[in-house]
């Protein structure tokens, strides 16, 4: 079973606890969406997996092994991670960028083999960016660029794929295309974990949903609160997790997001909509 499992994990960011005592598992070979308001620690939770957040307590297991004690390159061979907003838009050709997805396998100086080249080509074909292979990434539109980055993490050839807000900056068409690719990846057996902001998109895309919320629901701003004893309290917690239908029937999303759920029925079946 190739899914990350959080065991009583606490995370701090510059001495401020963000999350405390989180235990969480994800279903194998499914799409899991992480939902929650801004600043409740979704990104922090995921970034334990690429080494950006520092885990202060607890363990993360993958394949029964202590994931965090593995060397970074070994981690990147088992789990690929696409970070949220990329500050840098590389002016490299698409092919070169996608080839960098092989970095965990190639290291600093090993030469690319036929196998590496084949994986890179397949990744570009899958993400439908092969026709841009020789163009520079910074000349492409946002939607294509995001697919190029998807191709890069696919070239890592890992069973687990973590995507932090992959659809946030895409237009409608771009989002739909991207989600279709994710469904195809699931059908190939990959485990996908992603954060989303669009509840309706999450309901349509995800099999499994994890809902996070502010530790204190009245919290207006994502600033660390100073406890009366002078210590910081953590910011977020997990409100619920379960299959998409379980989450829907528990009405937790309405509570966390202060939203109203509407139910529609037409010839294609039942459809839910948050507003």
């Amino acid at each position: 079973m190739s899914v990350p499992e959080y065991r009583r994990v606490s995370v701090s960011c510059q001495r401020t606890p963000i999350l405390r005592d989180i235990s969480l598992t994800f279903p194998d070979g499914k799409i899991t969406a992480l939902l929650g308001p801004n600043g409740c620690g979704k990104t922090t939770l995921l970034q334990c997996l690429n080494g950006v957040s520092r885990v202060t307590k607890g363990q993360i297991l993958l394949d029964g092994e202590d994931f965090l004690s593995l060397p970074p390159r070994e981690r990147a061979r088992r789990l690929s991670f696409l970070p949220q907003v990329r500050t840098v838009i590389p002016s490299l050709p698409v092919r070169t960028l996608v080839e960098h997805g092989r970095f965990p396998w190639l290291g600093f100086a090993r030469k690319k083999t036929q196998k590496d080249l084949r994986i890179v080509k397949n990744a570009m074909e899958f993400a439908q960016v092969i026709e841009y292979a020789d163009q520079s990434v910074d000349t492409l539109s946002g939607g294509v660029r995001q697919r190029v980055f998807l191709a890069m993490v696919l070239a890592q050839d890992c069973p687990v794929l973590i995507l932090d807000e992959p659809t946030t900056y895409l237009d409608f068409q771009g989002q739909r295309q991207f989600c279709a690719l994710l469904r195809k990846l699931k059908d190939q057996g990959k485990t996908i974990i992603l954060t989303l902001h669009d509840l309706n998109q999450a309901l349509r895309l995800a099999d499994h949903i994890v809902v996070m919320r502010w530790l204190s629901p009245a919290e207006p701003e994502p600033v660390p609160r100073l406890h009366s004893h002078g210590s910081f309290l953590p910011k977020g917690e997990i409100a619920a997790c379960g299959s998409a239908s379980e989450i829907l029937s528990s009405h937790i999303l309405e509570e966390v997001f202060n939203a109203r759920l509407k139910r529609f029925e037409d010839k294609d079946g039942v459809c839910y909509f948050f507003e």
Partner: peptide
């Protein structure tokens, strides 16, 4: 972030 995710 990306470099870390790639195992560097």
């Amino acid at each position: 972030d990306v470099a870390r995710s790639l195992g560097m």
